[in-house]
Design a protein around this nucleic acid. Structure first.
Length: 495
RNA sequence: GGUCGCGUGGCCGGGUGGCUAGGCACAGCUCUGCAAAAGCUGCUACUGCGGUUCGAAUCCGCACGCGACCUCCA
């Protein structure tokens, strides 16, 4: 727990809209719950940003020395069948065996989700529970809500009685909504004939005969309501009250508001001490969303095969791009911004490679560089509500030190070099979760080939045949291979 | 319509009243056979109009512009 002495960690609690010092309920343990994906389609970059935010949170808490139980669910029940059927022949009743089995869809997109998480180097959660795996817990929760008088059955479904709840408890705190305003603004009356109030929401839904995913319950065959799974599973694995709940801004209402209400109605306690919400990734100022048609998948991103993309970008470029913006701000996607991030990341990683080769010129710390101060500022930035852009800005100060030392223009002591190595390994790899993406190592034959050309060019240069040496360099450049002469010799990379 | 938020230099973006954010781009210099890489230096902004203050990008008000949520959405 030595790391816990590194100053207090402040996070913006979206419940209070204030920056608060984070104090876990039962240190050194921390309970973290993040709303996971609904696995009925491919995740897009906007989704990735949200999970990235909480990946960094998880990494930082761990770095601080906390023992984090990180729970991120998979939503695999709800309205899957309806979505799948959308756009299909609505008249013909398809035989059951001709349809995709819902769990087939779930498995497919769960696999895809995991692939994307790995691609962007996101750590796996401690527990990844599924809604279908926790039906009993959800049914039990519905029972508790009903026993306390905040749920009512209607036509095989069970609804949460929002007006009754709101009369006895604060409701709408998280999203800043007043129940009167809500009532005044209601417009859609479709499908609410069973509800006593338009504000009520289903906690158990009766399944139509054609519905494939349904389970027996005290109220007949059905499936759990949209918001219930998170409440049931967070309660099960983290307790009735736990430390941090994260998710995208767009989940604040109604999803998270409903979670709070459900937990209070069922167990009498407000479930979450710190709410954290990540902001949206936008494209031309508009939220990236499937309905906007402006989303693209990680695969399209890597290949550049999308009308919004001028070229492909690596997963780490995108990760770095996102981390250069604070999680609570909207981030606008653009090719120019991604290219800037690509260059910046390249420089950062090059400096890290240089750092590994660096030797101190004296045993003592040098006077020319304040490495301990740099480390302190990096910590302070992260402790200040996960301010990754400021932390990265500090790291570039370190990059300057490293390059200057490598150029012999700054005399770093061995203690400073060692401290820089530790700082960069910790911050870049462990906290920011960046990793080396080497093309050369992926393809030994290509690297061998280029190395041979590098040797030929060196020989030509040695005999002052610059026409020949430049021809090698230019030809390789034409093929997208860029040579870089450094003090340690020539390296190459793709353009 | 209701609620909340945003508007920063060529671009992206941080910024918790005073002190250089940072990255990319651009320009000059050093290094280099030339170039690239690397280093150094320069580029000093905060939508508009009022107000509070010794002092505001930062607080308050108004205006304009933009967005998110209010329905599944990270």
């Amino acid at each position: 727990m030595a790391e816990l002495k590194r100053g207090p960690f402040w996070i913006t609690n979206t419940l209070t809209r204030k920056k608060e010092e984070f104090k876990p309920l039962r240190p050194p343990h921390v309970g973290l719950y993040v709303c996971g994906p609904t696995v009925y389609s491919d995740v897009h970059l906007g989704n990735v940003r949200s999970f990235l935010t909480f990946d960094v949170l998880y990494r930082w808490l761990t770095h601080l020395g906390y023992k984090v139980r990180y729970v991120r669910n998979i939503t695999d029940v709800g309205h899957l069948v309806d979505d799948i059927d959308a756009g299909e022949d609505k008249i013909a009743k398809r035989a059951r065996l001709e349809q995709l089995e819902p769990m087939e869809i779930v498995q497919k997109y769960t696999n895809g989700f995991h692939d994307v998480m790995r691609l962007f180097n996101l750590q796996a959660p401690s527990i990844e529970p599924t809604a279908t795996g926790h039906l009993i817990e959800q049914i039990e929760m519905v029972k508790r809500i009903m026993a306390n008088g905040y749920g009512y059955e209607a036509n095989g479904s069970v609804y949460f009685d929002v007006p009754k709840f709101a009369a006895a408890h604060p409701y709408g705190e998280l999203s800043g909504r007043k129940i009167e305003d809500q009532l005044a603004n209601t417009r859609d009356t479709e499908g609410m004939e069973d509800k006593r109030s338009p504000l009520d929401f289903a906690i158990w839904k009766k399944a139509e005969p054609m519905h494939l995913m349904k389970w027996p319950s005290p109220w007949g065959e059905g499936f759990p309501g949209w918001h219930l799974e998170c409440s049931a599973m967070s309660t099960k694995y983290l307790g009735q009250t736990f430390d941090i709940h994260g998710g995208g801004m767009d989940l604040k209402f109604p999803h998270h508001e409903c979670e709070i209400a459900q937990s209070i109605a069922a167990d009498g306690t407000s479930p979450v001490r710190y709410w954290m919400h990540g902001n949206m990734l936008t494209v031309n100022g508009r939220k990236m969303a499937k309905s906007e048609g402006n989303g693209f998948t990680p695969e399209e991103l890597l290949t550049g095969n999308h009308k919004l993309l001028e070229k492909g970008y690596s997963a780490m470029t995108v990760r770095f791009f996102m981390l250069q913006c604070h999680y609570a701000s909207t981030l606008d996607f653009s090719n120019a911004a991604l290219q800037a991030a690509e260059k910046g990341l390249e420089r950062l990683m090059a400096a890290m490679a240089t750092l590994e080769r660096l030797q101190g010129v004296t045993p003592e710390p040098s006077s020319g560089a304040d490495v301990p101060g740099l480390a302190t500022r990096c910590h302070a930035a992260m402790n200040d509500d996960l301010n990754t852009p400021v932390m990265i800005a500090e790291l570039f100060e370190g990059v300057r030190m490293i390059n200057s030392a490598n150029d012999g223009k700054l005399a770093l002591g061995q203690a400073d070099v060692d401290a820089l190595k530790e700082l960069f390994r910790n911050m870049v790899f462990l906290v920011l979760g960046l990793k080396v993406e080497s093309v050369a190592k992926d393809d030994g034959a290509l690297d061998g080939l280029v190395q041979e050309f590098i040797r030929m060019r060196a020989e030509a240069k040695a005999r002052k045949d610059f026409a020949a040496s430049d021809r090698v360099r230019d030809q390789l450049a034409r093929l997208g291979i860029v040579l870089k002469d450094t003090k340690e010799g020539t390296t190459w990379e793709r353009a």
